[in-house]
Design a binder for these strands. Sequence first.
DNA 1: TCAAAAGTGTTTGGCCTACACCCATGC
DNA 2: GCATGGGTGTAGGCCAAACACTTTTGA
Lengths: 245, 245
Amino acid sequence: MPAPEARVTVAVSTAVFGVRADASGAPRLHVALVPRMREPFLDRWALPGTWLAADEELADAAARVAAETVPGPVRRLEQLAAFGAVDRSPTGRVLTVAHWALSPALDDDGAAPSYSGGLDVAGLPAGVHVRWQRADAPPAMAFDHAEILTAAVARLRADLPRAGVAHALLGPSFTLAELRAVHEAVLGRTLDAANFRRATLATGVLEETGEVRAGTRHRPPKLYRYRPADGAPPPAAPDDPGDLS
Amino acid sequence: MPAPEARVTVAVSTAVFGVRADASGAPRLHVALVPRMREPFLDRWALPGTWLAADEELADAAARVAAETVPGPVRRLEQLAAFGAVDRSPTGRVLTVAHWALSPALDDDGAAPSYSGGLDVAGLPAGVHVRWQRADAPPAMAFDHAEILTAAVARLRADLPRAGVAHALLGPSFTLAELRAVHEAVLGRTLDAANFRRATLATGVLEETGEVRAGTRHRPPKLYRYRPADGAPPPAAPDDPGDLS
DNA sequence: TCAAAAGTGTTTGGCCTACACCCATGC
DNA sequence: GCATGGGTGTAGGCCAAACACTTTTGA
């Protein structure tokens, strides 16, 4: 058995997903990536990350990374897995605990900001440009981050049916078509609108706001919101306690 | 951003599951636990683990732990998650990458060894007694290992429908009743024998060996084996390549 | 002959899918 | 009016649960 002195450096990375409009205006699943500022892999795209401080919780570090990278709130932060292949970094043994999180569309009308021109974000070194990149067709990435991203997308898709996951990608109120567009963007395929409506309403997690979305050139759709959890205290606990406890 | 010198010790633990007969002879899901040999948590039960060597792959370390702990082959080793709460060890920051693995019943007749009397295993310090403990009612455990075990059981149950998971808990040939008993032990509930038979055979992954299990006091059941993967190269890759890569 | 478990057949109901169809609005 | 997407109805298929029933053995 090796001694505990055989040290391994621990990093934390977060794949922040958001549904944003692509060049043609269609909503697509994107992930927030940053260019590497130093060797190795200078200028390659990477998941935002940080070293883990000795007194910092994994989830806190992952949340900090997300908050420093992506404007606006970040929701549903969860751990993905540990990636620790011996040769995954050319500069020495690094174990990365990967997380994933969701960034809601800030606007409430489906015309989400795309950030596709690059965006300086406060708290990062000058010149760092966070960009939303297509999650299903990412650019060449540093280290094994492409592998991590693939796993994160698979996990997001598998978790999509869970209550609140799609919600975390939307604003407080939304039409069923917008909710369906989120599902379609995450899954990468179209869904039957009629059946999606029935299945979603049958779960009972939605309620009508009483308002409709105006300004369309067709029948105005109703707006919905997620029904607040019954009696559950709103504060704390962004994680689902039932899964990893 | 903290410096990489803020070191964190990395450990690897493996929850090895097996279906073994309990005191009444009924097959139950068990997990291999070892008693702590030193403080902290002296004499409490723990998942077998090791420190991660700087040049050792995570999966290799987890497999080594399992092989040194449980007699017989170990199958389907997969990573569960990283557990890294700051205060999870009273002796300093330790991040544990937990894995789970499966130990088949060595016998081919359903009367699996129970090891319930404790068993000295070669390669461990004298006095170490590996014991199969009930996975759904484990004893008091060291550190946060109860939490890890709960997550591992949940993952095993979720993965049970995947091809080969139940197989990894059985010998090379088995009756449908034995295969069903494995499913029932893992899930902790009974299944309808008729429907289980139909559903399992319909998948096409089983084939009859042509033999029957003799010595029962009823009609002798047919023996089955898993159909070998068509043309797939048998070597390497214990993981499912379609999932994480 | 009986008990016990293997193994088969059949019914039922739920859910998912596809798709026809009507509704309400902007232009 | 007409195009467009919102929203409803409905028939068919698949699948899983339930359970009655037959078969084959050891005792």
